[in-house]
């Protein structure tokens, strides 16, 4: 066996010595150390030797294998570098498949993240609501003319599809005591046929902050900070007096048009401003209804339209895009 090994060693070293190119070297490597190589073969045959010979043979063969490997590496360094097969780098690469979040999810997340940084927690509420939570508890009793502004979907079982996310205010205040700082993103419904600016289904983010002395000034500052975060530092916010039964004072939130920077354009109907939300100080009647003393606690609430904000953000002029779900639309905005 020892002889055999020695002979193989000489043969192997000669073989490597004579090699002229990388290809030849690779062939030599395979013939010696490949699966069916000579050295590999000998190593495999150790098992067939009488047991007392095995340790020595193993040792020698391992040494040989190492030596040959080293020689091959040394030789490789002396050979001219092989030029690899030239590849056509202009063939398109293998792209992994990627999907995308719907733009409404992304905007909603951005809104939620901004308010979470400001210390608001996130609450959720049902989409099928009772008349009580959607209207009555929000100081909009039956026969209140403000109900005309909400064209409501009713269910045959007497419930309704919430027309705004504001019922969450009530549900949260019933469960938890102030101080409260929450937002609630979610879907709402109104009986508005589809047109470029209406959809029977839409999304809002509701906000509510009730504490010892939350003021109208806090409301303004909070919304201003939000607007600047979402649309950039130069963004301005204007509160315009308005009416909602469940807040007082109430205001519409106008944002300086992100497209024309208040110069006036098609998007803002040449006014320089766009409406993005309704807000106000929580009406004492609403607070009393959930057992909160309106002289001990004050609070503000707002509700903003996610579609509206997404449209301003991406320059979309037709709300129906969000619900047609054309994959090119979703892909284009990711």
């Amino acid at each position: 066996m020892q002889d055999k090994i020695e002979k193989l060693r000489e043969k192997a070293l000669k073989l490597i010595e004579d090699v002229k190119s990388s290809e030849e070297l690779e062939r030599a490597r395979v013939s010696l150390l490949g699966k069916k190589g000579e050295i590999t073969g000998l190593i495999r045959s150790i098992g067939k030797l009488p047991p007392e010979e095995r340790p020595l043979a193993g040792k020698l063969l391992n040494a040989l294998k190492r030596e040959v490997e080293e020689k091959i590496e040394e030789k490789r360094k002396t050979l001219p570098k092989v030029r690899k097969v030239k590849i056509d780098t202009s063939i398109p690469g293998r792209r992994p498949k990627t999907g995308a979040l719907h733009p409404l999810t992304r905007i909603e997340e951005e809104i939620v993240d901004i308010f979470m940084r400001m210390g608001f927690s996130v609450e959720y509420g049902p989409e099928i609501e009772t008349d009580y939570y959607n209207f009555t508890a929000l100081n909009t009793p039956e026969h209140h003319p403000a109900r005309d502004l909400h064209d409501t979907f009713y269910l045959e079982d007497g419930n309704l599809l919430r027309t705004h996310t504001s019922p969450v205010q009530i549900r949260v205040m019933e469960k938890k005591k102030p101080p409260l700082r929450i937002i609630s993103p979610g879907r709402a419904y109104r009986f508005d046929p589809f047109d470029p600016s209406h959809s029977p289904v839409f999304h809002q983010v509701e906000g509510l902050w009730v504490d010892r002395d939350v003021s109208f000034s806090d409301l303004k500052g909070t919304l201003e900070a939000f607007g600047k975060e979402l649309f950039g530092k130069e963004t301005r916010i204007k509160l315009v007096p308005h009416y909602f039964p469940f807040t007082e004072p109430s205001a519409e939130v106008h944002l300086s048009c992100p497209f024309c920077k208040e110069k006036g354009c098609r998007v803002c109907k040449y006014t320089g401003w766009v409406e993005i939300a309704g807000c106000g100080m929580v009406h004492p009647e609403v607070l009393r209804g959930v057992g909160i003393d309106p002289y001990q606690w004050t609070g503000f609430a707002f509700g903003m339209g996610v579609e509206r904000i997404a449209m301003l953000r991406y320059g979309i002029d037709d709300i129906r895009n969000f619900y047609e779900n054309d994959l090119r639309f979703i892909e284009g905005l990711r």
Binding site: M118, G119, P179, S217, L239
Partner: peptide
């Protein structure tokens, strides 16, 4: 409303 100052208080007393 335009004359009302803006106040920003971002620290919440509760964990978010």
């Amino acid at each position: 409303y335009e004359r009302v100052p803006s106040s920003v208080r971002v620290i919440s007393s509760e964990p978010v």
